[in-house]
């Protein structure tokens, strides 16, 4: 009887080891393939040229890289100030129903499908503006980033010892100065982490860009025009039947993975406390 229980115990534990191993191995397999297929694409043309038509060699994704940077910067300019302020509110000022509701709904917002947010941005920005644009993509990505920044900022600010701020208040400093000049600088690392995680979350988003950024094979940085973005070009080229475009798509996938991994790992190093993801 005991032997059977021991055997069962061992068996189930091995099974649990297999589960964890399988999960970690999946990542390794995906990363392996993306590097194997993508690395050969990462040459000078990839980073420095714009896309060329099929059959014209030397195409790259330079405009998509700049385009991605531009929409991420726009999204950050919208989401980071609002998110950080809302996060500070939750950590220091918020009480009662409003704070609970904000907390709850920003958590819920992280679960909204990004494609639905794309339709939202299309309806409120693209349709009134009458054209696809970089700024509509910025709005869509800002909505996706916002809840991550709110919640990370809140936790970062909350971890600052309240005694520090109270000390400042006791010296006669106004409350807002105490928050902005004493508490917030102490929470700096956590707030930057939130921003990095927000950027990491949206850097690879492609679904909302279909109806906002729209894509562009030529150079454009005009925020009012359609713009190229790396995830979009990966999607378009991956679905194409042309070997040279598929090659660029794998290269783009590799660039995206490297980018989000670097952002995530930096965030962890900056602010290793558990729960900041």
């Amino acid at each position: 009887m005991l032997a059977l229980r021991q055997w069962w115990n061992g068996f189930m534990l091995v099974l649990a080891w297999l589960c964890a191993g399988l999960a970690a191995a999946t990542l390794a397999i995906i990363v392996f393939y993306v590097i194997q297929r993508g690395a050969p694409a990462l040459n000078g043309h990839f980073f420095l040229s714009v896309p060329t038509p099929v059959g014209v060699p030397g195409g790259g994704v330079a405009n998509a890289l700049i385009g991605s940077v531009e929409i991420i910067v726009m999204a950050s300019l919208i989401a980071i100030p609002i998110g950080v302020m809302a996060g500070i509110y939750l950590a220091l000022l918020g009480k009662g129903r409003l704070a609970d509701a904000v907390r709850f709904f920003s958590d819920v917002l992280t679960g909204v499908p990004s494609i639905a947010i794309g339709i939202f941005a299309y309806t409120v920005v693209v349709v009134p503006q009458k054209h696809f644009s970089a700024n509509s993509a910025g709005v869509a990505l800002a909505v996706i980033m916002l809840p991550i920044i709110v919640r990370t900022t809140e936790e970062a600010v909350r971890l600052v010892n309240p005694a520090i701020r109270e000390g400042a208040l006791a010296l006669g400093i106004e409350s807002w100065k105490a928050i902005l000049l004493v508490t917030v600088p102490c929470a700096r690392a956590g707030i930057v982490t939130g921003a990095l995680l927000g950027v990491a979350r949206v850097a690879g988003e492609s679904a909302p860009l279909l109806f906002t950024a729209f894509g562009n094979p030529v150079w454009s940085t005009n925020p009012n025009s359609p713009i190229a973005a790396l995830p979009l070009i990966v999607f378009q080229y991956a679905n194409s039947p042309y070997a040279e475009w598929q090659q660029i798509a794998w290269g783009g996938a590799l660039a995206l993975i490297v980018l989000v991994f670097v952002l995530n790992i930096t965030a962890r190093v900056l602010f290793p406390a558990k729960g900041y993801r």
Partner: peptide, 24 residues
């Protein structure tokens, strides 16, 4: 480290899963 690996999996963009899914 294993938990870190599994959580990095969460950060992989969906279009990368897509291209891997289609070709591998």
């Amino acid at each position: 480290p294993v938990a870190l690996l599994i959580e990095l999996l969460a950060a992989v963009p969906s279009v990368v899963f897509g291209i891997w899914g289609l070709y591998v």
